[in-house]
Amino acid sequence: MRAFILRSVFQRLVLLLIVSIMAHSVIHLAPGEPSAVDPSNPRMKPEDIAKIRAAFHLDDPLYMQYAYWMRDLMSGELKSFKDSQPVLGKIWRRFLNSLPLFLCATLLVWTLAFPVGIQAAIRRGAVYDRTTTVVAYTLISVPGFFLAYLVILWVVNTFGVPVIGLKTFGMEHADPLFRTMDRVWHLVIPSLIFASGGVAVLSRYVRSQMLEVIGHDYVRTARAKGATEDTVIYRHVLRNALLPFVTMFGLLLPGLIGGSVIVEQIFAWPGLGRLGYEAILARDFPVILTLNFIAAVLTLAGTFLSDILYAVVDPRIRTGLQGDA
C-alpha cells in the first residue's frame, strides 16, 4: 500500500509539472497584453509600457518567465499584474467566498439525489420514474444562465426581494439575526441553480446503480426469505449500491474552481470563478496560471483521494489499481 501511495504521488507531481508548463506556454503564446500595459491609454508613453513590461518580465524568454512564476508562487510573493496584490491572498479570500456556495450546493445535491433516485428505481417505469427522468434530462439540458435568469425574474417579480450578491446592502446596522438570514437567503437561489444539474446527474446515477444491484441473486434471496420490501431496498440493495459513491467524494474537489463562472457572474458572487474570469479579461497571467495550477492540484488530489477510498472500501481493487489510474 505504501509503495502504491508513493508511486501515485510521484506520478501526480510529474503530471503537475507538465500541466503547469503547458498552461504557461498556452497563455504566454496567445496574443494580447496584460491590461496594465494597455496601449490604449493615451497617457501612457511607449517608455512607460516598456518599463512595466520589464517589471513583469514580459520580454524575457518563456522558460525564464516560467522560472520566475514558479519561484514567486513558491515563495508566496507572486503579484497580480492588475493591482500588484499578492495572488495567493486574493485566491484565498475568493475561496472563502466560494466555499459556502459550494458546500450548500453539494449538500443539496447529495441529500436530494438519493431519495429521488431510489424512488425512481423502486418505481421503475411508473409515472414517478418517467416524470423524474424527464425533469432530470431537462435540468441537464438547460443552459445555466437561461435557468438562472428565469428564476431571478420570477423571484424578484413575485416576491420583490433582492437575490444578487452575498447580502442585501444597506442592512449593515440591522439586527444580526436579520443579517444572517439575509445571507442565507442570498445563498439559496444560486446554490439551487448550481445544484440543479448535479441533482439531475447524480439521481440518474443512483437510479441505475440501484437497478443494477436489485437484479443480483442475493437480493432475490433476501426477498425469498420474506424480508419486507423496505428492508430489502434500504438494507441490502442501498448498502451495496452506495459503494461506488464513496469514491465520488474525491472527484468533488475540482468543482470548487471549474464549474461556477457563469453562476458567479450572474449572481455577482465574488468567488473563484469570477476571479478567473476577470483575470482572463485583464490578461492577468499570474492569477490565471495560479488558478489553473490550483485546479490541477485539486483534480490530482481528488483522483488520488478517490483511488485511496476505493482501495479502502473494496480491498479487491487494491492490486488492480496500478493498471489504470
Partner: peptide
C-alpha cells in the same frame, strides 16, 4: 424504517431551512 425516513426528511428540512430565510429579507417598499 429509520434510514428511509432520514433520507426523506433531511432534504426536506434542509430546503425548508433555506427557504424560510426569505421571510427575513426586506422588499422594496420595506
Amino acid at each position: 424504517m429509520n434510514l428511509k425516513r432520514w433520507l426523506l426528511l433531511t432534504p426536506l428540512l434542509l430546503i425548508l431551512l433555506l427557504l424560510q430565510s426569505y421571510l427575513w429579507v426586506p422588499t422594496y417598499e420595506k
